[in-house]
Simulated assay, not measured.
Amino acid sequence: MSRVYFTSPSGTSELKGSERAWLGSLVNDIATGALALSSHGNADQVLRFVDPAHYLYLEPDAPKRPGWQAPWAHSYETAFRVGMGGAPLVQFQGRELSTFTLALNTALKLGNDPIKLGARIHAQCELNCWVDGPDRAWLADIIDHGLEIGVYRRGQEDDPQGWEDVAAFLRSRDDEPVVLYDSIGSEGFPNAHTGDWMPAWPEGIPQTHEGWELMSEEQRQERDERSDAWYDLSDAEQWAISLPALRAKKGHGLQIRPDNWRRFHFGHGLSVLDLVAHDAEERIAARLGTRVAT
């Protein structure tokens, strides 16, 4: 699993990849535990929201063999974690409800502050989530609490996970933001694509590999040359380009801050608690802005 880096204009600290994987497992464990498919007989309830094209779909009124819930629940939990099945596992009125988003929101609703931070790191480090200078000590306090109660792991003395160093780094000053990125899924920070360094993407061409092939040779060359020139800039120049653009992404929820800590949610805001509620359809419809079919 990729390492998570906490970087500022004056330094960087890192969290081991195994701890990133641990945070992801915690998020999924909380969600599948809250589903309670075996212990509370919620299998019939969540089955209502399985896409008919998914291999786990069963006709609601079809006869089922005795004891079907346990093996079905095990398969459902596996599919929930890894997103397998060739069709949406969870849907409502034909609209897919991402299991990743459901799991993250479940962790936010049921978890303490270290769990909430773990969910934010797991989901948003690749997107360059960040904390502003005055909030760095607040974030470090959450890390200390996570270590104290065992949600975050210290590791071995000669092979620490990195939490203590990250907390110390956060507390080292309060006049610079700290931006997160991971070692595999992101470009790092700052980078040539956050800010106005790169030429605007040509209008009408999708920002995909196929779109790259649709560009003219001159357009591709311009982008290549501009990308290469990024590395000739000083660190200060790179930060001056990328940081204002990151700060401007106010609608993306990337800033980790105390004033919206309790009300923050991912995407549609739904959790697995909504799936197993007695009024599940009403809850989901209200969040999606639709109506319950009558």
Rank of each mutant, 00 (worst) to 15 (best):
K16W: 02
R20F: 10
A21G: 10
W22H: 12
L23I: 12
G24H: 14
L26S: 04
N28D: 00
N28P: 01
I30R: 03
I30W: 01
I30M: 10
A31D: 04
G33M: 03
G33V: 05
L35W: 02
L37W: 06
L37Y: 06
S38V: 14
N42L: 07
A43I: 08
Q45T: 15
V46Y: 01
V46N: 04
R48W: 01
R48M: 07
F49M: 05
F49T: 03
A53P: 07
A53K: 15
A53G: 15
H54P: 01
Y55M: 08
L56V: 04
Y57V: 05
Y57S: 12
Y57Q: 09
L58K: 15
E59M: 07
E59D: 12
P60K: 09
K64P: 08
G67D: 08
W68S: 04
W68F: 11
Y76H: 07
E77W: 00
T78L: 10
F80K: 04
F80E: 04
R81F: 05
G83A: 10
G83K: 06
M84F: 03
M84L: 13
G86D: 05
P88D: 03
P88V: 02
L89G: 01
Q91G: 07
Q91Y: 00
F92V: 10
F92A: 09
F92I: 07
Q93G: 03
G94M: 06
R95L: 14
L97Q: 04
L97N: 05
L97S: 00
F100A: 07
A103V: 04
A103G: 05
A103E: 03
L104A: 03
T106P: 01
A107H: 02
A107S: 12
K109F: 06
N112G: 03
N112F: 00
D113K: 14
D113Y: 12
D113C: 07
D113Q: 14
P114R: 08
P114K: 07
P114S: 09
I115A: 14
I115D: 09
A119P: 04
R120G: 13
R120C: 12
A123P: 02
Q124C: 06
E126F: 07
E126H: 15
L127W: 00
C129M: 10
W130M: 00
W130T: 00
D132Y: 08
P134C: 06
R136E: 06
W138N: 05
W138Y: 09
A140W: 05
D141H: 15
D141Y: 08
I142A: 04
I142P: 06
D144R: 04
H145E: 15
G146N: 08
G146M: 09
E148V: 04
I149V: 15
I149S: 14
Y152P: 02
Y152W: 06
R154E: 13
G155Q: 10
